[in-house]
């Protein structure tokens, strides 16, 4: 019995060790980032793992190389516009597909879902030419427009609308509310947890978007924080101290949203297998 107990304890120790190593490795780069922000580039590339005194110098370098307020405003503006418009337009469509019936409904819906398969690589050149025709190159509206059409978020809202109580809608109709009033006054407040989960998906995508903004934003004053970090970080000899300041600042909003809305965050990530 004692050998069995010993074996069991060893096994349990191994499990904890494995999980602890996984957790440590997962969190470590965050620690590295924060420590790095306080060290000079020469210390960072030597792998120094203790806090240093370079924070102010790094910050000064970063803010002198980058018009940080403008860059953050660009990122924030794109994220806010993309989030609000995507949630509105996609939830309207998700609701519409579920509530209204027609002969074409399922065919249209399947066609729309087919677009989920399109890789962005096959869109970027025509989209770039299209934005050129519209005269929108180097504008933030060009960054947002293609992302607003999100078949996935429409799908997500339609799936969730199946749980929206019919009685509520019927009662509202009897009371004489118009269709758009039902949507804005009843559906939206009732479905707020769905909106929260969808918000996470759209927010993360918009804030971290890279390839399309890289193509369409060409002057320094329109660039987003993600683009700036990439161009600073991909230099042959990057000033890592300054780059760390940028990555810390770029990660704070997503970390904040994650800790403020952890449950919805995970729900949003799982959304696609519901």
């Amino acid at each position: 019995m004692t050998t069995h107990g010993l074996k069991k304890r060893l096994a349990s120790a191994a499990v904890y060790l494995f999980l602890a190593v996984m957790a440590f490795l997962s969190v470590f780069p965050f620690l590295w980032m924060v420590i790095g922000a306080t060290n000079s580039t020469s210390d960072i590339i030597k792998g120094k793992m203790s806090f240093g005194e370079g924070l102010l110098v790094n910050a000064a370098t970063f803010f002198s190389q980058v018009n940080a307020p403008l860059i953050f405003w660009n990122s924030a503006k794109i994220t806010i516009i993309a989030t609000v418009s995507t949630l509105l337009i996609s939830s309207l469509a998700g609701y519409g597909f579920e509530i209204f019936s027609s002969r074409f409904r399922e065919k249209l819906y399947s066609l729309m879902l087919l677009t989920l398969m399109i890789p962005f690589a096959a869109l970027m050149i025509p989209l770039f030419m299209l934005m050129g025709k519209f005269g929108l190159i180097n504008t933030h509206i060009a960054v947002v427009l293609p992302t607003v059409a999100s078949a996935f978020i429409v799908f997500y809202f339609r799936q969730s609308t199946k749980a929206f109580p019919h009685e509520l809608r019927d009662a509202a109709r009897v009371d004489g509310l118009k269709e758009w009033q039902i949507f804005f006054l009843i559906y939206m407040p009732v479905m707020r947890s769905t909106y929260a989960a969808a918000f996470i998906i759209v927010f993360m995508t918009a804030w971290n978007n890279y390839l399309w903004p890289l193509i369409v934003l060409q002057s320094n004053d329109t660039k987003t924080i993600t683009l700036v970090i990439s161009s600073l970080g991909s230099a042959y000899y990057p000033d890592y101290g300054a780059v760390m300041i940028g990555t810390v600042l770029a990660t704070i909003p997503t970390l904040f949203v994650f800790f403020a809305m952890q449950r919805q965050f995970v729900e949003g990530m799982l959304g696609s297998v519901k």
Binding site: W32, G36, T226, S230, T251, F258
Partner: peptide
């Protein structure tokens, strides 16, 4: 929660 670009820079360093 990290952006693909940000974590890549961290790994590079």
């Amino acid at each position: 929660v990290t952006s693909l670009v940000a974590y890549t820079v961290l790994f590079k360093s």
